[in-house]
Computed example of a mutant assay.
Amino acid sequence: MINNNAKIYIAGHRGMVGSAIWRDLEAKGYTNLVGRTSSQLDLRNREAVEAFFAQEKPDVVIDAAARVGGILANNDYPYQFLMENMQIQNNLIDTSLSTDVQKFIFLGSSCIYPKLAPQPLKEEYLLTGPLEPTNEWYAIAKITGVKACEAIRKQFGKDYISLMPTNLYGPYDNFDLNTSHVLPAMIRKFHEAKQSHLSMLSEVEAEKEHLPVTLWGSGTPMREFLFVEDLADAVVYALENQFQDNLYNVGTGVDLTIKELAELIQQTVSHTGEIIWDAGKPDGTPRKLMDVSKMTDAGWKAKVGLEEGIKRTYEWFLENQETFKQVKI
């Protein structure tokens, strides 16, 4: 059992996932949390990572640090998505091993599974087929992290586990339209179409439909979404419990079409215009639904429904429009 005074290093503590984990740990009484910004500690630099570990001597490491982005970013910067993610996780995993960190939680993504794997995705499907080409660079990096933790668990008997969340969203998400994932991008597109319409028209004309919104693909792929605070709760649960295996999916076990997602976000934002689907743009994987039975059997389930989660995310977006994160390549 982890003591509330244990020193817990959260790599990537300023990101959407890391900050949610930090808030959750604080709320549950953990008092010895450690974090460094990317300007304070370059996780790609092995010597810098080793010096940091020697100074801080963490008892637990949670790896929420990664270079992330949507289809466009993965396509445009394949080398960075492959190499930088491997550098970050290799430095953290290997230094944790060499400094005798007993508990390590590695966070990945559902994109590690084959593009056409049976649905829902089971942990055992890893490495059974080709990956989705639009994000294979990120996926391959994350797979190496999963296997590294598995190898350490097997060879050294340490409690190193990997949690693979489905598509995440929530406060502190990335809303940059060049690099963001589908849900935050939709929130921003619908909001800006609504605001642009209202600023252009007179009060009487504003009663007309809002400006249209163009979205990528056909709208037919199915996706599952997990509110980031639920993932944080799952991480803390994994921290406080001994899991029997090395790899666990984290999700809701429920999915919907991208078209249904768009309509739900449109309703939340109160946008009344037309949705135009650009079928010339890629859809990505046809379906990505997680089998979460292993995590359920371990005693954890998601709590926040999609409608509530989108509402809370949009509220955060409205409060932080001037400062929300924009990834710079």
Rank of each mutant, 00 (worst) to 15 (best):
I2E: 10
N3K: 15
A6E: 14
Y9A: 08
I10K: 03
I10A: 02
A11G: 07
A11V: 04
V17P: 03
S19F: 10
I21S: 04
W22E: 11
T37Q: 05
S38T: 12
L43N: 06
E50V: 15
Q55H: 11
V60H: 02
V61N: 01
D63Q: 13
D63N: 15
A64E: 07
G69M: 01
G70M: 04
L72I: 11
N75W: 01
P78M: 11
Y79K: 13
M83K: 15
Q89R: 12
N90K: 11
N91H: 10
L92R: 09
I93N: 05
D94I: 14
S98M: 14
T99V: 05
V101S: 08
S109Q: 03
S110W: 07
I112S: 07
K122F: 04
E124Q: 14
Y125S: 12
L131G: 08
E132I: 03
K142R: 07
E150N: 11
A151G: 15
K154E: 14
K154M: 12
K158T: 10
P165Y: 01
P171A: 07
Y172W: 11
D173Y: 03
S180E: 07
H181K: 12
L183N: 00
P184A: 02
I187D: 04
E192L: 12
S196L: 08
E205N: 11
G219L: 02
E224W: 03
F227S: 11
L231C: 04
V236Q: 12
Y237N: 11
L239F: 10
Q242N: 12
D245P: 02
T252I: 09
L261Y: 04
I265A: 08
T272W: 00
I276W: 00
G280I: 00
K288C: 13
K288H: 14
L289D: 01
W300M: 05
E307G: 09
G309W: 04
G309A: 10
R312K: 13
T323C: 07
Q326M: 15
